[in-house]
Design a protein around this nucleic acid. Sequence first.
DNA 1: CGATATATGTCAGTGTTATTGACATAATAT
DNA 2: ATATTATGTCAATAACACTGACATATATCG
Lengths: 162, 162
Amino acid sequence: MQRKLPHSNLYLREEELRRGIELLYFAYRDFTRDPDNILADSSFGRAHHRVLYFVGRNPGTTVSGLLSLLRITKQSLSRVLGQLVDEGYIDQVAGVEDRRQRLLHLTEKGEAFEKELFETQRQRVAEAYKKAGPEAVAGFWEVLLNIVNEEERETVLKQIEK
Amino acid sequence: MQRKLPHSNLYLREEELRRGIELLYFAYRDFTRDPDNILADSSFGRAHHRVLYFVGRNPGTTVSGLLSLLRITKQSLSRVLGQLVDEGYIDQVAGVEDRRQRLLHLTEKGEAFEKELFETQRQRVAEAYKKAGPEAVAGFWEVLLNIVNEEERETVLKQIEK
DNA sequence: CGATATATGTCAGTGTTATTGACATAATAT
DNA sequence: ATATTATGTCAATAACACTGACATATATCG
């Protein structure tokens, strides 16, 4: 008597789905560890890193721009951003067209710190890319993008193709 | 006069490294959103989900097994695990060979809840896999595994090949 | 047997990130 | 003039994780 296979599409069996879930957990955990270690010696945390990162990547972005990119609340961002501004890592400039806006830029100090934090992740990701090769990397991007919420996918695409 | 390209390995330029970093952030953010929404109606949070998940995947595991898999402290786990045991989602049985050990298992209630939480992520990941195709999925696994700390890679491999 | 190590549990304090809700101000748009 | 938008701020709360210290039961080693 023949046993039925769990699923015809082998890469869609529960086993393969759990593998993705677990790898995502472990990779993300280790991916954040390096910058977290550096941050531990500062007065900042992971949230500050994210703000530094995305302000660095989107110079001149506004508070609401950050809010919709990061999907956190204004009150959460406010504390973190306020500290970064107070300590001279981020500059706020009133917008020219709309003077209610605060256009955000990294200061030199902010750029230097972002660079230091980025360097640890750059090395880790570059190493992983190198080991896996360009085709694997393309698949990596493809799957990750499809894991992102459909409504967010356009925003994310705009961000990563900058 | 010819301009030198930023890097000969096109997939290793800063742009491509930042793409991976950003996709990892956005994908992880959305990947945790579905279970978080379900958990919001319970007295549990993301940490409880992780414990449910890994106990479900490793029935009979011990407290220290979980600790070294999740890389959190005993005190952190204690609160979360204690609540799950108190509310009847996880059973503890004294080990037969070593009676100091507490072997952990999901109860029926725990299994049902884990299943409900898993289902949301299963759908998201299955959808992403389907859209990207098997080769992309293989690349996705490969890169993620290489992002994991080298010292942890064996533990992770053991886990995902279960 | 006695000393040491291991597995687990617990208490107390702290820090970071995030949330909700309410309210305030300045500038822009209708 | 009024409404909306962009930003800021105050207060309270919750989840998660950490460190350090100490306790108990069991196992193992000499």
